Amino acid sequence: MKLNAYTMMIVLSLGLAAGCAPGDSGEGTPNEAISSQTNSAIEDGASEDIADHIHNDSSETQLDSEIESLGCVRASSSQKSAVNLGNTKKDEFLQKCAQETNNSFYCAQLVRPNPKSSSTFRCTYGSSQTHSLVHPDENTWKYPIEAVKVLQDLSAKGIKISHIYNWWRPEPYNKNVGGAKGRHPYGTSVDVRFGSEGEANKAFRELCKMRAKKRIRAIGHYGSASLHIGVGDRLANTWGKRCN
């Protein structure tokens, strides 16, 4: 099979092998990641996580089909068990989120993996797996719920928000969509698409103010309508664009 330059770029950037491999040990448990967080700020631009959203821009559909055709890392039985455990708590999470956010409709979006990466989700977990992700560690739930409150405050300022499209992305699903290891696998952040790039720029300025007040820790800007909001990210930084 001949691979064009675009496909080769994808393979190299995502580190995928042709064919599905069994299991992926990940990089430690969520509790280990969360307990290692500190309050010390890291300089803006100290860490670049552009790869974390390579699949979310205009080439997303094409990239997703390339991943499926080339193969992906299959989730191990223990990794599937963690996903299934989280899904048993879905109603509990949604109830908690609703109670703390005045029944925000964003709560339902948190547990729905990116619809545009659905084929990668199937490749990772199999076609019978429910397309839903809830972090099984209830200690992480405060992060996405706070992110919903952040969005509510942005909306109150007239900033147009489209939807949340990522919260928890466990391994190896996170790897298969090209995600950075230190963010979404720990359930500490969300990805949000705004009404336009201009609206995302407005949101970025407001998020920078929140970051200065230590309400959030990280912000990712990708030169598009999408932003990463790291409420509890271990790295307290920005990337793609700096706060003034």
Rank of each mutant, 00 (worst) to 15 (best):
N84I: 10
I164D: 09
W167E: 07
C72P: 07
T7Y: 03
W141M: 03
T61N: 13
R242L: 02
I34Y: 13
S128H: 07
C107W: 06
G19A: 10
C208H: 00
S118E: 15
I54G: 15
D137K: 12
A225S: 15
Y173W: 13
L14Q: 14
G23K: 00
Q152E: 13
A33M: 08
G240T: 05
A18S: 10
S118M: 02
N237Y: 08
V190Y: 03
G220H: 07
E100V: 04
S78N: 09
I164N: 10
N237V: 15
I219N: 07
P136R: 04
V177Y: 12
Q37N: 12
N39H: 06
I145D: 05
P113T: 03
I10W: 06
A18W: 07
G86V: 02
K149Y: 00
L3W: 08
Y222I: 00
I50K: 11
T130Y: 06
I164V: 10
V111W: 01
S117K: 10
A180K: 11
H184Y: 03
I34W: 12
A236I: 12
I216K: 08
K142A: 02
Y186V: 00
Q95A: 09
S196Y: 08
R205C: 00
E48Q: 07
T188Y: 07
N87D: 11
S117E: 11
V177T: 12
E48M: 05
V231D: 02
G179P: 05
H221A: 12
Q129A: 15
G232S: 03
G23M: 02
E92I: 14
G126R: 02
L207H: 12
R217P: 01
M210W: 06
K213L: 10
S35H: 09
K90C: 08
E197G: 13
S117D: 11
E199Y: 04
S76A: 11
R234I: 07
E48K: 13
C20A: 14
T188F: 04
A236V: 03
Y6I: 06
L70W: 11
I50N: 11
C72K: 03
K96L: 13
G158K: 09
H184S: 14
S226L: 00
K160D: 14
I50T: 02
Y173V: 00
Y125E: 11
T38F: 00
L12F: 08
E199Q: 14
L94S: 05
E146A: 13
E27I: 09
A212D: 12
L207A: 09
L110C: 14
S77H: 09
V177Q: 08
D49I: 10
I164H: 10
F194M: 01
K181A: 11
S104I: 05
W141D: 08
S104L: 06
R215H: 05
N139M: 01
V192A: 01
I159D: 03
G240P: 02
P22Y: 06
N114D: 14
